[in-house]
Amino acid sequence: MLRPATVMRLGHHMADTATHEAHVTSTGLSNVKLGMWLFLGSECLLFGGLISTYMLYRGRVSNGPTPEQIYDIPFTSVSSFVLLMSSLTMVLAVAAAHKKDDRGTNLWLTVTALLGATFVGGQVYEFTAFYNEGLGFTTSLFGSSFYTLTGFHGVHVTVGIIMLIALVAINKRSRVPGSKSETVEMIGLYWHFVDIVWIIIFTLVYLIPV
C-alpha cells in the first residue's frame, strides 16, 4: 500500500549537516558552506567587540602589571607561528579530502589538531605565568579584558581541536572515501578563521605597545 504523506519526514533527505549529495540549490552553492560563511561574518562582530574592549582598556592597569612588563614576545611569537602553520596543515587536509585520500586527510587533520593543542598548551602556560607575575582576571581592566579576549580565542581553538579529533574518528568509521570532504572543508574554514583572528590579536595585543 502507498504510505500517506505524513510519514514522509522519516525519509531523511534535506540534509542539515553534511550535504555531500549534489543538491541543486537556487544559487548552486552548498547550504552548509553558505551557513558557515554567514557564521564567520557574524563572528567578526563578536571578536571585534572583544578586541575593541581590550584596546580601550589595555592601558588601565590599576596596581597590576602593565602589558610591557609581562608579555613574553619571543614565546608568543613561537606559539603564533605554530598556529599559523596549522592553517597550512589544515589546507592540506582539505586538499587531501577533495582527492578522496582518506589516509592523507586523517594524517593532516591529526597534525592540525596537534599543532592547535600545542598553541592552547602555550596559552595555558602563558596564563599561568602571567598569573604568577600578578595579573589575575580581576586585577585590573587590562587583566579582565586580556583574559576575556584571548580566552575566547582559546575556547574557539579548543572547540576546533575537538571537531578535528571527532572528524578523524568519524572518518575512520566511514567506508566511503572522501564522503566527509565537505565537513573537512567546513571545519577548515572555521580553523582558518580562528587563525586570522589570532593574526590580528598578535599584532594589536602583543606587538603594538600601549
Binding site: 562582530l45 563578536l46 567587540g49 582598556y57 590599576s62 582576571f137 580581576t138 581592566l141 579584558s145
Partner: peptide, 20 residues
Amino acid sequence: PVITVALFLLTFQRSFGAQF
C-alpha cells in the same frame, strides 16, 4: 554577536569579578 559580547562582559563582572 555585539550584545553577546556585552552580556558576556556583564556576566563576567557579576559572576567572576571582572572589572569591565
